Computed example of a mutant assay.
Amino acid sequence: MQNKELYYETLHQGYGQYFEVKKMLFEQHTEQWHLSIFETNALGRVMALNGAIQTTERDEFIYHEMLTHVPLLAHGHAKRVLIIGGGDGGILREVVKHRDVEAITMVEIDAAVVDMCKSYFPKHSDGAYDDPRLALVIQDGLDYVRSAADKFDVVISDCTDPVGPGEVLFSSEFYQHCKRLLNDNGIFVAQNGVPFLQEDEVSNTVRRMHSYVKDCTFYQAAVPTYVGGIMTFVWATDDIAAKQLSVAELEARFTRAGLATRYYTPALHQASFALPAYVQRAVASALTITE
């Protein structure tokens, strides 16, 4: 907090956004982080970590729907899903809507994050933690994928930006183990920043991931809170055809799933793989290098 009324995001040097704080609900300083949860008129409750906005009540549905329904509906018959991070419960809330999913493993580094988000952001999880298909594991995400023996159809990494403790979830080792945990034609997705301001995140991910899969690319969505243009989500799979489904097929799967969404549509799903030229160039350049 720079004063009693405004919270300034400091993720991007020389550029950012501010929030009028109606009420500070929670604030904690440790050696590793500065966590703030506050009430606003414009976006409801907001969570910020180390000067970067993590989630807001008003627009979280865009991020969580696109990071969940795109891989699950593209896969078409996912039975086992792994969520890395996601302690606010938003991804879990969307995954449990898929009735055909039989088992969900969620790995969160800190149980306090889960409890805090249940208290301050109850609509994010909306009771999803009570779903009997869930196995909640309190463990570091990299440590989990290093040692896990289970296989999954979809792996969703809902992680913070690649700085500090979250940096390992963008490493080549993490991607290699996530690929190892995928069943044949399984799909891995993860948030990958705003490429207009964080183009290096696109390049780094491609360099570190593309040697493990046949198809490493991105899809996108516009999330108002994550300023600077579109947000990209990494897409990694051996199933080349998974991102090429027709709108008619996606419509059929969406209808069968009986989903109710506020952002996701089958047509938007297909269109989300159309990337701006500057992102395409970053991907093409990075494909020539392996880290």
Rank of each mutant, 00 (worst) to 15 (best):
G14H: 04
F26S: 02
F26N: 04
Q28V: 10
T30E: 14
E31I: 09
E31Q: 14
Q32Y: 15
Q32E: 14
G44S: 05
R45M: 11
N50R: 05
F61E: 06
I62Q: 04
E65I: 00
M66A: 02
M66H: 11
T68M: 03
H69A: 00
L73Y: 12
H75D: 08
A78W: 05
A78D: 06
V81C: 09
D88F: 04
G90I: 01
V101D: 04
I104C: 03
E108G: 02
E108F: 05
M116H: 09
H124V: 00
D126I: 00
G127F: 13
A128D: 10
D130F: 12
D130A: 15
L134H: 07
A135M: 14
L136D: 06
Q139D: 14
D153N: 11
I156Y: 10
D158V: 07
D161K: 07
P162D: 12
E173H: 09
K179C: 10
R180V: 03
N183D: 12
N183T: 11
N185R: 14
F188Y: 15
V189T: 15
V189P: 02
F196W: 15
V202Y: 01
M209S: 12
Y212N: 10
T217L: 08
A221S: 12
A222S: 14
I230R: 07
A236E: 10
D238Q: 08
E249D: 13
F254L: 08
Y263F: 13
S272Y: 05
V283M: 13
I289K: 10
T290D: 14
E291H: 10
E291Y: 13
